[in-house]
Design a protein around this nucleic acid. Structure first.
Lengths: 203, 203
DNA sequence: TCTCGCATGTAAACCGTTACATGATTAG
DNA sequence: CTAATCATGTAACGGTTTACATGCGAGA
């Protein structure tokens, strides 16, 4: 249900075609939410039918494309959604299940799996920072479009919020990395529960 | 695809009926993975057909139940899965999308939404710790069954790993809470990007 | 000509949740 | 007797991914 609002939020800055939204959800927005074109196109059609977006056909020679823009109804729905609380989906990290049963493995295998996990996360954090830096320098079209729609006194607050989301993502990754490092360390020390305050549970 | 291995991991400690597994995934295991009976029953049937679990019918008076146990094939598949790397699913936290567009809200609304989020997370951490403490005292059937299958010298390592998973969950929650508090603070300060190292990006 | 990027979709499969259906046993 | 718990499922729906299908336009 969140893709709907992610899309509305993007269209609130700038009208876009489905294809453009698709590219967007494969690159920048990919960090927050991901979606394929095959999901985006039908969703845009339903949303147009519901009247939360307007569709306008464009013709370039023999080629056509449909540009979607947010309607007042759509904007109202977005504001309403952003302003209300939503139940958080339960933790669904496969790595946790793996970790739970890693006593089935040789210490070397644990080393390898956790090591690869750490490397992936390190790359992820690097990508996040790199992406952030690139944007700080490049000042994307979208954020400029967004700022242009609002008075200058709002700009600091808007930029702060967008950047905090990135900071949050980085924090999440770092928490996972710190955990993985502790796990690795504890595993290498042969299982004596060093660094762990309290001990067992089920599963 | 992970539920399959979560189930195999539980059955590796102890044979169980679908109903027992269901209760399990609603309480203890709920922190790591959740599943409803309506998903568990059909999955157990497919897994039995594939030969990764054995099913044995039990009759108590006029009542029947099917108890599933892991097979050698199932154990091999579990060990194989635990010992290999799996692509992590992208971040899918609705709160991130909300945060991204919170410049659409009054500061009071931001306060309310983030406040409720923080309260939910606080309760979650409390539940996690409470659950952990309860188990430290209670020493569940399942962990005892699991330890009984393995030599005493492995016990410390096994307990360490189970407990590290809980520690990881708590860490994740705490990272989210720290982020939400920063976000709240920054929002209250009216948007001047205090406490945020680097600034803007797209979306 | 052929490939790549633009542009739009459909179909099938998969995972998960909600709702519904059924019936036996046990505790109050 | 009634409600809760044990026990097993099916059906429908929603969200997501993968694979497939189609066609235009620009540049090598």
């Amino acid at each position: 249900m969140s893709l709907r609002y992610a899309i509305l939020g993007v269209l609130d800055a700038q009208p876009m075609t489905g294809y453009e939204l698709g590219g967007f959800f494969e690159t920048s927005a990919n960090w927050v939410w991901s979606a394929k074109l095959s999901q985006i196109y039908p969703l845009l059609n339903t949303m147009a039918a519901e009247g939360v977006v307007d569709s306008e056909d464009e013709v370039h020679g023999r080629r056509r494309s449909t540009r979607y823009s947010i309607t007042d109804k759509g904007r109202a729905e977005l504001v309403d959604w952003v302003g209300s609380s939503h139940s958080l989906p339960g933790m669904r990290d496969p790595m946790l299940i793996q970790a739970l049963y890693m006593d089935l493995l040789d210490p070397e295998q644990v080393d390898r799996v956790l090591g690869e996990y750490l490397e992936v996360m390190r790359r992820r954090v690097a990508d996040l920072r790199e992406h952030q830096r690139a944007l700080v320098e490049g000042e994307t079209d979208l954020i400029r479009a967004r700022l242009a729609l609002r008075p200058a006194r709002d700009h600091a607050r808007m930029l702060m919020m967008k950047s905090m989301v990135f900071a949050g993502l980085i924090r999440q990754c770092e928490a996972s990395m710190a955990w993985a490092e502790d796990f690795l360390m504890a595993s290498r020390l042969g299982g004596c529960a060093i660094g762990v305050e309290s001990t067992p549970q089920d599963m």
